[in-house]
Design a protein around this nucleic acid. Structure first.
Length: 669
RNA sequence: GCUCCCGUAGCUCAGUCGGAUAGAGCAUCUGCCUUCUAAGCAGGGGGUCGCAAGUUCGAGUCUUGCCGGGAGUACCA
């Protein structure tokens, strides 16, 4: 809302400085003054200008005097009421508040999917399909999903992929568990997987969670058993045998479980891209030729990496005394390809630069009724008609920070084949792990080793079966929320209660994971994660529900209110914003007008936290307003209309912010 | 060794491109439900922004060097 005005002023200032001082400014800093009394926008330009003038002319100039000159040039801009000079030389702009308010009242912002810049491919979730999802996986999914929503809200076209590593070591481990530890046949696994689960712990992904831990222990007992894993992995990669069939069945079932878990959090995907297809459709062979042809990789004939195809490190990289080689091996001396190699192939495909495509099969409609597609190696069962997947302008991968090194190599490899600015936009959205506090680990009934007890935090470990399972946590949140709703609204039916309980649980969990920046480690604490008070998702919902209730109680249409608003005069609105209380109300509207600015900030840094914090601040300011002004009992008709329009602006802004955060507003709380 | 991340109130964390008096939640203490919902609001106490230099009108923010914690640096992913 305020951004177009800020841009206009910026243009004006740049032109003025060019004409008057012959200085070409590339950037003009705009900020919001700490108090509304100081103004609505601040330009600390005079300080910078004084410095530049000294550099060019050698003469000292007073920033305050420069500010006076600049201020004079800002007269006559529509939407600007006046300009003041403050402090040592800040140029503070005051909006035409009445005009701004009117624009906000009538604004009907719809995120327009322009997509002019092409399509962004966001990959997230990508959980190894061999066990139940835990809280760390949920952090990934929530970050990816929210980032996608933010990008869409800023007008980008986004395609969401969930990469399924169905031929990896982790899948091989549960296959080993079923086939070698438990000695089950595929039919017996089917019976187990498809039995109706009456409790959470009977579900297939929970069973595999435990089995995976048992397999880890089984290897520990006798390291020779790792040969079983190697053989199993090889059979899975080969395909066309009983082991591969079991792996296919198990991983597909677990993916179903993951999709169900994510659906509870309102997270969905456009495409499930499976590693088995990358293997069997020979993506790597194509990529290999391209890498060789471009000189991105070279064959080593001597030294430590003799017999390998490697991607050379940059000149000057530290090689002295290094225990490790800076060069990255892409093809091992035994001829097999590393993960980095396979991933380069996959990412070339994402950008439409591989010259090969998957086959696609419609999988199902998700919880929102959207189509979910999955890759398939088999042309005969593939759908001839499908959405246009891939051919993105950039890829954005939500992967934990521990994989920064391979991710950097993947991007480097892709860039060496085709280094246009589109690839350069691609990024690894690295996030830190979710760890457990020793208290949380103890609450989960885990035995804590001596060394772990010394630490501040304990890493979750799928291999050890150590972690907070996503469904368990959501269950607990839903139970708590359901109990709370029942206490407040005993009259509502069970189905409605369950729905609202889910909405509250989702809000609590999503906000909990988004209130930390990506680079901050979350030390998981039950009390904090299960809280509905203070800086939490439910607080945001509660504030929004309150705002909505005003209008429900009022029982009038928005159009009717807008008509009443149109009858208010400019003087009446100016008077409304006068005085201390008036400035606070103006402050609230001003803040609500900053959503676009916040979205752009969150989108450019791929940092959803900014939006989460903004929504919280807005809710907080609204609650203050709510307590100070009892709208429905306001006797003055004009004032009541104006207060209603303020509440309406904030309600709409909150609803939109929450929606982008993936949080719904319950009908009651 | 090298690379990256983190260090801000008792605890958990925000802090935009270097801007005006460093914020929030939790915890703690004191008030506020006859009102559009108390999952709320107001107020109090609580700070060497890890340490030390530097850059400048101005540094939590930028540079360098230390200290402490974490991660990576595989013919694993």
């Amino acid at each position: 809302m305020a951004t177009s005005l800020a841009n206009e002023i910026r243009e004006r200032l740049i032109a003025m400085v060019r004409d008057r001082y012959g200085i070409e400014l590339s950037e003009v800093v705009v900020e919001v003054p700490p108090q509304r009394e100081l103004g609505d926008l601040a330009f600390p330009l005079a300080f910078d200008l004084a410095k530049r003038l000294k550099a060019t002319t050698g003469q000292k100039s007073n920033p305050r005097e420069l500010a006076v000159t600049l201020a004079a040039g800002l007269e006559g801009i529509a939407g600007v009421a006046r300009v003041e000079i403050a402090g040592p030389g800040f140029l503070n702009v005051f909006f035409d508040r009445s005009g701004f308010f009117s624009t906000m009242v009538l604004a009907d912002r719809k995120a327009g999917g322009r997509g002019e810049s092409g399509k962004l491919i966001v990959e997230h979730t990508s959980i190894n399909p061999n066990k139940a999802a835990h809280i760390g996986h949920v952090r990934n999914a929530v970050l990816g999903d929210t980032t996608s929503r933010i990008l869409k809200a800023t007008g980008e076209r986004v395609e969401v992929h969930n990469y399924i590593d169905n031929t990896g070591v982790q899948v091989a481990d549960v296959v080993v568990g079923f086939l070698h530890l438990e000695k089950r046949t595929l039919d017996e696994i089917r019976v187990l997987a498809e039995r109706p689960a009456t409790t959470r712990s009977e579900s297939f992904d929970y069973y595999c969670w435990d089995l995976y831990a048992r397999v880890g222990a089984w290897y520990e007992e006798d390291r020779e058993r790792l040969a079983v894993r190697a053989r199993t992995l090889h059979e899975i990669e080969q395909g066309g045998n009983a082991t591969a069939e079991a792996a296919e069945y198990i991983s597909t079932k677990i993916v179903d479980c993951h999709l169900a878990t994510m659906a509870r959090l309102d997270i969905g995907y456009d495409l499930l891209a499976r590693e088995s297809e990358i293997l069997h459709l020979h993506f790597w062979a194509h990529a290999f030729e391209k890498l060789k042809a471009s000189g991105a990789i070279v064959f080593e004939t001597e030294g430590r990496n003799k017999g390998c195809w490697v991607m050379k490190a940059e000149e000057g990289a530290a090689t002295v005394e290094s225990e490790h080689d800076a060069d990255k091996i892409i093809v091992r001396s035994n001829g097999t390809v590393t993960y980095t190699g396979k991933d380069i192939a996959y990412h070339l495909w994402k950008l439409g630069k591989l010259g090969l495509d998957f086959y696609y099969r419609f999988l199902r409609h998700d919880h929102r009724g959207r189509e979910v597609w999955v890759t398939t190696p088999d042309e005969s069962i593939a759908s001839p008609v499908h959405p246009p997947f891939g051919n993105g302008t950039a890829f954005l991968n939500v992967i934990d920070v521990g994989q920064s090194y391979p991710q950097a190599n993947v991007k480097k490899g892709v860039m060496m084949i085709d280094h246009d600015e589109r690839v350069a936009r691609s990024a690894h959205l690295a996030y830190e792990k979710v760890t457990l506090t020793p208290a949380a680990a103890a609450e989960l009934g885990m035995e804590i080793s001596e060394t772990d007890a010394q630490r501040q935090q304990i890493g979750m470990s799928g291999r050890k079966g150590l972690g907070v399972k996503a469904d368990d946590l959501i269950d607990r949140l839903e139970e708590d929320a359901g109990r709370e709703i029942h206490a407040r609204h005993p009259e509502i039916d069970a189905a409605t209660r369950a729905k609202i309980a889910n909405q509250i649980a989702v809000a609590a969990l999503r906000y909990f994971l988004l209130k930390y920046t990506r680079t901050s480690i979350i030390a998981f604490d039950f009390r904090e994660a299960l809280s509905f008070d203070g800086e939490t998702g439910p607080y945001l919902q509660y504030s929004t529900v309150r705002a909505r209730n005003i209008f429900r109680k009022l029982g009038r249409e928005r159009a009717e209110l807008c008509e009443a608003f149109a009858r208010c005069t400019r003087d009446q609105i100016e008077a409304f914003f006068a005085g201390e209380a008036g400035i606070e109300i103006w402050s609230l509207i001003h803040f609500a007008g900053r959503l676009d600015e916040v979205l752009r900030l969150a989108a450019s840094g791929f940092e959803p936290t900014h939006l989460a914090k903004y929504a919280f601040q807005l809710a907080k300011q609204f609650n203050l307003f709510y307590h100070q002004h009892h709208i429905l009992s306001e006797p003055d008709e004009t004032r009541r209309t104006l207060l209603l329009m303020v509440a309406d602006i904030v309600r709409r802004t909150l609803e939109e912010s929450l929606s982008i955060l993936g949080i719904e507003t319950p009908e009651l709380m």
